[in-house]
Lab assay of single mutants.
Amino acid sequence: MAAAAAAGAGPEMVRGQVFDVGPRYTNLSYIGEGAYGMVCSAYDNVNKVRVAIKKISPFEHQTYCQRTLREIKILLRFRHENIIGINDIIRAPTIEQMKDVYIVQDLMETDLYKLLKTQHLSNDHICYFLYQILRGLKYIHSANVLHRDLKPSNLLLNTTCDLKICDFGLARVADPDHDHTGFLTEYVATRWYRAPEIMLNSKGYTKSIDIWSVGCILAEMLSNRPIFPGKHYLDQLNHILGILGSPSQEDLNCIINLKARNYLLSLPHKNKVPWNRLFPNADSKALDLLDKMLTFNPHKRIEVEQALAHPYLEQYYDPSDEPIAEAPFKFDMELDDLPKEKLKELIFEETARFQPGYRS
Rank of each mutant, 00 (worst) to 15 (best):
F19T: 04
L116P: 11
A352D: 12
E322M: 08
K151H: 05
D111S: 02
E345Q: 10
I103Q: 15
Y102W: 03
A286L: 09
P311A: 08
P356Q: 04
N271A: 02
N123P: 04
V188P: 02
T118Q: 08
A189H: 05
D149W: 08
A189S: 14
D111E: 13
G230T: 00
S41G: 11
F168T: 05
T159Y: 07
A42G: 09
T206P: 13
E314Y: 07
E33T: 07
Y25N: 14
N257Y: 15
Y205H: 00
K285D: 04
L252D: 07
N238Q: 04
M199W: 05
L346P: 03
L200N: 08
K272H: 01
G34H: 00
K55Y: 11
F348A: 08
A219Q: 10
S360G: 09
H61P: 13
E341A: 08
A327Q: 06
K54S: 08
D124H: 05
P11T: 14
K259S: 00
D88F: 05
P274E: 05
L116H: 07
E250P: 03
E314R: 06
V145I: 00
I256G: 06
R359P: 08
A92T: 13
F168V: 01
L150R: 00
P280M: 08
I53E: 10
G16F: 05
V188E: 06
M293C: 05
L244Q: 14
G32M: 01
I243S: 13
G32P: 07
P319E: 05
K270T: 02
G215D: 11
N27K: 14
D210N: 12
L134A: 02
V46M: 10
A171E: 10
K300T: 09
L76W: 01
M199T: 00
I227A: 01
Y187V: 11
E96Y: 05
E345I: 11
H269Y: 12
N224K: 14
H310R: 03
E350Q: 10
A35W: 02
M108K: 15
E305C: 03
P226H: 14
I217H: 11
D321G: 00
V188H: 06
N262S: 00
S29L: 00
Q62T: 13
Q306N: 06
M221W: 04
Y263V: 10
D100R: 10
E71M: 12
E109N: 04
T295H: 06
Y25W: 00
A352Q: 09
T181C: 09
F331H: 08
G242T: 04
V173R: 09
L313N: 03
P226I: 02
D288S: 01
A52W: 04
L267P: 08
N123L: 08
A6K: 05
G182C: 11
L289W: 02
T190A: 13
A6R: 07
D167G: 00
V39E: 15
L75Q: 14
L137G: 05
Y102S: 13
I243Y: 02
L155D: 05
Q306A: 02
